[in-house]
């Protein structure tokens, strides 16, 4: 197995927000924190297209580079995770991230930031896999159960794909060949480098 990636097929995405609520449901993500969301361009006009975005788990993740407390790590599968026990909620990663992935629950006085929260690729965090503690801090660890991120698994039109990079690009390539068009894989160059 190579490494895990997300891929959103903009010709399929219908902005139904299933990915958003699947994520909320799976991880009990609180109101105001959006690990995943759908962005629409040319809304209401010809050329309207939507993309589901979250942490892309970049190859050379800028968040890891800027974090002042070095709380980020990347798993063998390429998933970018962080240790909330170390995170100070400074917000540097938010400014560094090209996808706007980091989220901060309102915590503390005067609307101060709480610990950063983001998409985990349904891989939990640095706590015992499947433990209560892991769930409370990071959400469910589906990868450890042999399951892929729920947002992609429940996508209404199978626009959002997740999994081994070779597998998802294979599915996408097959689709583009069959239909004869493909709007390109949004965000892949930014996340995974231009050779992808």
């Amino acid at each position: 197995m190579a490494r895990m990636k997300f891929l959103c097929d903009a010709d399929r995405c219908i902005e139904c927000n299933a990915c958003v609520t699947a994520c909320k449901n799976e991880h009990e993500v609180p109101w105001g924190v959006n690990r995943r969301r759908v962005v629409t361009i040319n809304d209401g006009q010809p050329g309207e297209r939507s993309i589901s975005t979250a942490c892309m788990h970049c190859s050379d993740a800028p968040c890891m580079a800027v974090c002042p407390v070095d709380c980020f790590y990347q798993t063998d599968e390429g998933v970018v995770l962080h240790d909330k026990d170390l995170c100070i909620g400074c917000g540097y990663c938010f400014y560094a991230c090209p996808f706007g992935a980091p989220q901060y629950p309102q915590a503390g006085n005067f609307g101060g930031r709480g610990k950063m929260d983001k998409c985990t690729f349904c891989a939990g965090g640095p706590k015992e896999d499947g433990s209560e503690e892991e769930f409370a801090l990071y959400g469910r660890n589906r990868l450890a159960e042999g399951k892929l991120p729920l947002c992609a698994e429940m996508c209404s039109t199978k626009a959002l794909l997740a999994g081994d990079a070779d597998a998802v690009s294979d599915i996408y390539r097959e689709r583009v060949t069959a239909r004869g068009f493909g709007g390109g894989v949004w965000g892949w160059n930014t996340a995974y480098g231009s050779d992808t």
């Binding site: 709380c71 240790d83 026990d85």
Partner: peptide
């Protein structure tokens, strides 16, 4: 720097 947090389990 290098990751300073707790280790995670391998799949």
């Amino acid at each position: 720097g290098t990751y300073a947090g707790a280790p995670d389990q391998q799949l």
